[in-house]
Computed example of a mutant assay.
Amino acid sequence: MMKMSLQVHHKKKLNVSWEKTFTAKISMLPKSLPSNQKLLIHLRTVIVLQGFQNPLKVVYSHSKTPSTKSSSRYIPQAPDRILDAPDILDDYYLNLVDWNANNILAVALNDTLYLWNATTGTIERLFTLEGNDYICSVSWMTEGATHLAVGNSLGSVQLWDCTTMKSVRKMTGHSARVSSLCWNSYVVTSGARSGVINHYDVRQRDYQVATVSGGHTQEVCGLKWSPDGKYLASGGNDNMLCVWPVAGGEKHSQPQPLYSFSAHQAAVKALSWCPWQPNILASGGGTADRTIRFWNCNTGMCLNTLDTKSQVCSLQWSSTYKELVSGHGFSNHQITIWRYPALSKVSYIKGR
């Protein structure tokens, strides 16, 4: 088994700080052969003491940030910390990390879910699945940031209260693994390898409030609700990008897509809605595509296309700087910051 690690890049706070956003990607980082795999994450966080080691043997290392003048903007070129992640699954279609508003990172390592507190440096094991089951997706509830949805390989979604470290409920309904999750208030939306999308209202006894099929013929590997809750974007291994309107007076989508875009030439996993223009969606394609496309979902028009030269694994907007961060896999394994809407390159971090 390959040795895996988690790299954390620190965004130094200057005159204006980044929002609490992150960009994550799984990528092979070759030197001569791909003997190491690292998960790169951009975020704003609190520095843990150098050499800190917890009882679960996840080691944090800190590379000191060079001093800069207060008027300048420092963009690091090296990880702030490296966390060992020996059992993380090498599967492009899964979504195995998620950061919440309380500065806690959920990380799925095969069948076990860990919570890393970036403020205190502590790590806790939330649970381990039984048998041959493994974790396929994780997503924090946006309201309160204390409840975590976890999708598994057997087709169910578990809801965990991470303040009490207890399972709240288990929701079934998929016939295949649940590879993507996202929230719209109290409704968690799940996408499966079967191409089916389910909506679960976690407050109700009869939790499955809607099922959507027909938009995708292969695995749904990307899901994102728009900030205003009006649209759901879904990306699949069938190279399709679908935009679903919200059902009137509800928190789940309508059964038919508003748009079905086939412009990407590979799987569409990376999705991100613009926080200051909630009708603008950025989507990224896989290895055979390598592009980021920008869509106006009020009109259905593609506003621009950007060739990144690498597989697009993740996208995250920064409202502070009006920029977009993209995380990449094969072939350059880079992280790039783009100025929007000019799409000029602000900074480039090469994978190693």
Rank of each mutant, 00 (worst) to 15 (best):
S213W: 09
A176T: 03
S253Q: 07
Y200T: 07
C221M: 01
S180G: 10
W276A: 08
Q277E: 15
D228V: 09
D201T: 04
S272Y: 06
Y231A: 04
T189V: 12
V212D: 01
H199M: 01
D228K: 13
L181P: 00
V212H: 10
V202N: 04
V268G: 07
Q265Y: 10
S194Q: 04
H174L: 03
D206S: 12
W276P: 02
Q265M: 13
S234N: 08
F261R: 04
Q277M: 12
R169F: 01
T163P: 00
N239A: 07
G191D: 10
S272R: 02
Y259A: 02
S260H: 09
K224M: 05
A266G: 14
L271S: 14
L271C: 15
V187Y: 06
G229P: 05
L271E: 14
A263E: 15
D238L: 11
P255V: 13
S175A: 10
H174E: 03
S194T: 08
S260E: 13
T189D: 04
L223D: 00
L258F: 01
V246T: 14
G173R: 05
Y231C: 07
A192Q: 06
A270K: 05
G235C: 00
L232P: 10
Y200H: 15
Y186S: 12
S190E: 06
S226E: 04
G214W: 12
L241W: 08
D201F: 06
T163G: 03
W160T: 04
S253N: 09
K224P: 00
G214H: 12
L181Q: 04
Q256W: 02
K251R: 08
L241V: 09
G248C: 03
T217W: 02
Q277K: 15
R177D: 11
A210C: 04
S226L: 06
A267I: 00
C274T: 02
K251L: 10
S179V: 14
V188P: 09
V187W: 03
M171T: 07
Q256L: 12
K224W: 01
Y259D: 01
D228Y: 06
S262G: 11
S234C: 08
Y186D: 11
T189A: 07
V243L: 13
S272H: 13
D228G: 08
K269L: 14
V220H: 07
A247G: 05
G249Q: 00
G222A: 00
S213K: 14
C221V: 15
L271I: 14
S167R: 12
K166F: 06
V212I: 15
S167N: 11
P257M: 05
P275I: 08
K224I: 01
D206F: 07
V220L: 06
R169P: 00
G236L: 02
Y200V: 08
H264W: 02
L258Q: 15
S190K: 05
R169G: 15
A192V: 02
Y259I: 02
H174S: 07
A263P: 00
S156V: 14
I197K: 01
K230Q: 14
